[in-house]
Amino acid sequence: MAPVLELEGITKRFGAIEAIRGIDFAVEPGEVVGLMGDNGAGKSTLCRIIAGTFAPTTGTLRLNGHEVHFRRPSDAREEGVEMVHQDLALCDNLTAALNVFLGREITFGFGPFRFLDRGKMQARAGELFAELKSETRPGELVKRMSGGQRQAVAIARTRLSEPKVVLLDEPTAAISVRQVAEVLELIRRLRDAGIAVILISHRAPDVFAVCDRVAVLRRGEKVADKPVGATSPEEVTGLITGAIEYA
């Protein structure tokens, strides 16, 4: 299958510091790729380039074979690249439905007089939560929700449009074991919908549970990219720390 997202020779410098260097990377529709590496290895930088937070210094990004240049996150969103941030980027003072639609509100009215269509947003958010098989009530304040439900709200957001690629930044870092299972289930649902998923994680068990492939970054370079069946948590750990050079 043709890759939906392709990166070629992506390098990013911040002043004298080279955060990532010559990264080639591709994901196919319906594929879940784990992106692993130690703190400072360049995982976040790479993700932010894909999600449009900043542009690469050199290298090209292609979506469905077409070269794209994102200048801001909304550009990436328009092309079907959605990101779930590590802190989920939720407003605790708003309901789940309003959080899902934040920045892309549904309105009705005429001319300059436009009003929020809370009913429609509530209903659509409810559908998205149901698709994700999540016990999340659209009318409830996010403040009162569990970690798993909060993840569901952030993931539901990515499905408002027809996303091609969804990036998840450490979605399992700050939640309980039981909720981790919930989140991994959410990721499988994205995959089943034919969406390419990039999962950034520190946790080898999660990556091995849900991913088809794992890529390892170390000090800004990609040192491994192979199917999970062809590697092991031990090998990945060795690659992350540098005990194993390349694989």
Partner: peptide, 21 residues
């Protein structure tokens, strides 16, 4: 209105609101 929601969102979590456009 959308503007009203933006006022609440900005006060609730400005960083998150900005990330969401």
């Amino acid at each position: 209105t959308r503007f009203g929601l933006w006022i609440y969102a900005t006060g609730g979590n400005s960083a998150a609101s900005e990330l969401n456009g």
